[in-house]
Write a protein that binds this DNA or RNA. Structure first.
Lengths: 128, 128
DNA sequence: TAACGTTAAAATGTTTGAGCCTCATGGAGT
DNA sequence: ACTCCATGAGGCTCAAACATTTTAACGTTA
């Protein structure tokens, strides 16, 4: 169920969504780590909460991402049909230092169990 | 000399360049027909002269196109190192009705010898 | 378990700034 | 003078960043 073709109207939206470094960084993290909540993205990217939320709503409205509510968090993830396209896009950006650093920061925070994802996993282990 | 990787800063610029239907249509025509001058693009796309000129300067400034002066015309073309990337982009848009129509209009005008390109070729045949 | 206060997560209301269009003008070449 | 193209100024729409408010989970106490 991948998207092989789209029209210029949608294309315009998609490119506009990617025409901002903040959103590029968000999409990159979502692409490499399945899903993140607003709070975790804030932490990794060092954004304000408002900025993070706005950009994710923007991405949701253009149809690039979706989210699910679990406990107190909203976990955003890239929509299935866009994975193909975005992976191709980020092929061109895979060497970028800023994106590489973002992923490192994510890994560190995850290892240190400082993310909401960790707490979520914890709860599931303890049976709740 | 194709571009396989670029950083987010340039990526942001490129995506911003493509985040406008007018510029998408221009790039599409340049991609399929090597080079066009402002006046011809005006004619094919039904843009005002100002609008056409502004978008092409925008594309030139972001590094997607370049141009050469010949006789009274400025012929714009897609830069060599961006061909690969743009061809991949437009693979997703190849079925779009508006883009297909644009190319048809171009073909018709070209066949009817109503474009600057035609006059250019004419001059070369007659030896200037 | 009902009620209160506290904190965390996310969304919304507002203003400033950027991008696109049009009209009009300017300049270079034939 | 005519053609082709570029640029300046003004108006309009949309998006980014600010601070603030809503929503909901949690803990304690009784």
């Amino acid at each position: 169920m991948r998207l092989k073709h789209f029209n210029v109207t949608f294309g315009e939206q998609v490119f506009k969504a990617m025409s901002d470094v903040s959103r590029i960084r968000v999409l990159h993290l979502l692409l490499r780590n399945k899903e993140l909540c607003i709070a975790d993205l804030e932490l990794v990217l060092d954004f304000t909460q408002t900025k993070t939320s706005r950009h994710l709503i923007y991405l949701k409205n253009t149809g690039l991402v979706s989210f699910r509510k679990q406990d107190q968090w909203a976990f955003y993830y890239i929509k299935d049909e866009m994975l193909d396209f975005l992976q191709q896009m980020f092929g061109y950006l895979e060497k970028d230092p800023l994106l590489l650093k973002d992923q490192e920061v994510y890994q560190t925070l995850f290892s240190n169990r400082e993310l909401a994802i960790n707490r979520l996993q914890q709860r599931h282990f303890t049976g709740l």
